[in-house]
Amino acid sequence: MRGLLALAAVVLLAPLALANNYHYEIAILVGLNAIVCVGLNLLIGYAGQVSLGHAGFFGIGAYGSAILAARYGWPPLASLAAATAAAALLAWVVGRPILRLRGHYLAMATLGLGIIISIVITTEDRYTGGPDGMSVPPLALAGFALSGERAWYWLVGALLVATVWLSLNLIDSPVGRALRALHGSEVAAEVAGIDSARHKLLAFVLSAAIAGLAGALTAHYAGFITPGKATFLHSIELVVMVVFGGMASTFGAVVGAAVLTALPQLLTVFKEYEMVVFGGVMMLTMIFMPTGLVPTLAMLARRRR
């Protein structure tokens, strides 16, 4: 609970340090990535399953909402909900048979699924605008369009706090304990009477829905979307954020997303060495903090005491 309050305080106080719309933009992107990572962390950190296709769900949310709103004239809130539901439904349909298998089958299946979604988005240019992308109408409710970085900041900030709250509650619930038991030992968990497939499916569908929602929000916020956000590369970026921040740590996912979204912006001072410095920071963190940023720092703090 203390962590949640701290996060809420950070969201509330951050605007004091945000001098212009560009700063707000970075804060919003951090928030949107953090939302996806908190969801993905439920799957990777707690259910012990790796998804290499989360950008696909992000893409379904983004393009689903964009197409329904731009091409079929749906009100953006309805298209947002429909696109989120579509991402969840697809995860459920795909996850049901696959999650009965053991090992890394989910990783392989999501890898394939993500690539298929990315190819469909790139080739179906009548609907998606193809590789050059498409425009997306702004988010509006009863005639009032949500525009401006400040308004979006508060929306994304509130959603981030809500997602973290949801995640923390879930982890502390019987479902969360079952998930953690699964991560520890699937056999032992099943012996204890936990339906492993059902719980893994729940985590998978939930994380896909959250990715879809964040995707749809990103599309409406940016006003323009390209297939780049649905590619395999973006899937990897999301997994890296979770691992970097610390698996099985909700706040780790938030910190990972924040650092990896903001760092490239700070590193532009290195010009052509930007990528080298970025890679160096990643490697050093993984070598000296193998469990991720937040769990390592938490452990150090405990040891001090």
């Binding site: 212009n20 719309n21 560009y22 700063h23 933009e25 970075i26 992107l29 992308g133 990103t218 940016a222 323009f224 979307i225 390209t226 780049g228 956000k229 490239p264 912006q265």
Partner: peptide
Amino acid sequence: AEKARTFAKRLIE
């Protein structure tokens, strides 16, 4: 495209 948009905002703001 997303990075381009962020950088454009940075250039403007």
